[in-house]
Design a protein around this nucleic acid. Structure first.
Lengths: 152, 152
DNA sequence: CGGTATCCCTGAAGATACTG
DNA sequence: CAGTATCTTCAGGGATACCG
């Protein structure tokens, strides 16, 4: 999917983001990249994805500037796939998804992985705030439409 | 998509979230709901989605507890679709997507909609922090794997 | 190991017509 | 207006075989 009508022209940044990373596999690959995976086989094993699909997804993610291919760190012959800065900046998206999932998609006693500060072990959280730091909910936010200068 | 292998069993909350809302249309519908849309025709017009597809998506979102169908507010005969609390809690996800899109998917001068505090007009931001409020980046976070008590 | 090249198949989405 | 019912299309993805 993600194809039938590109949202490139949409003025809503969320829609454009979904256009770029809103497909099934891409975000899972990114998640694994955050998780430290770098090699083709690692992704494949982790995701259980067909090789041709993985190959194409990696290519797309590179084309979109989210991953970059780099030579093996240890001098090996293989490629490695690393997040670019653009890719790393998806961190809040991943954390937001994680946080929501933790809250709603696990049974009370059910175990799940946790995201913590590697230095202090503290849980990691994410909140929406105004510029001066006040917490804000959806009811207090409003979308400011921007008129299209091109359109009549 | 979203089907071939359900990630229900995955211990990664992000993966489960993607399993539930990671499909193309669902998040766009949720976005529109945040945007204040409530009626079938409003969603259809906004998204340009086929009616049968919209119908099915709304049903799925209701089944998943993200939307709820309520009688028309003004006493009209039609249905309205409102976000549940679970749905509203997707707010950080939407803001995170928006923020990333704003940063990377628009040309320098290109206009886009903005999310602001409705009272003060201040821009809305989102950051990942530790519990005691320190900003944290992907390099400082680590995923704590949780062993499966069921699995040998 | 790290892919590319094919073939096939399913199911999600579109179009359209119809109903209360 | 707010859907449901069908039919059809098509591309994303799985499987497999092959290659440097």
């Amino acid at each position: 999917m993600v194809k039938r009508r590109s949202l490139k022209g949409d003025y809503c940044p969320s829609a454009r983001s979904l256009d770029v990373i809103g497909d099934w596999w891409s975000l899972l690959i990114v998640r694994d990249a955050f998780d430290g995976l770098t090699r083709f086989s690692e992704f494949q094993k982790s995701l259980g994805i067909a090789k041709n699909i993985l190959s194409e997804r990696l290519r797309t993610l590179i084309a979109r500037g989210i991953l970059k291919a780099v030579p093996a760190a240890n001098g090996g012959a293989h490629q490695e796939y690393h997040l670019t800065e653009k890719g790393r900046d998806l961190f809040p998206v991943m954390v937001a998804l994680r946080q929501w999932g933790e809250q709603y998609l696990f049974e009370p006693g059910e175990k799940h992985s946790r995201l913590v500060d590697r230095d202090t072990g503290q849980a990691v959280r994410l909140d929406v705030r105004t510029e001066d730091g006040r917490l804000i909910g959806p009811d207090r936010a409003v979308i400011l439409k921007v008129a299209d200068p091109e359109q009549p």
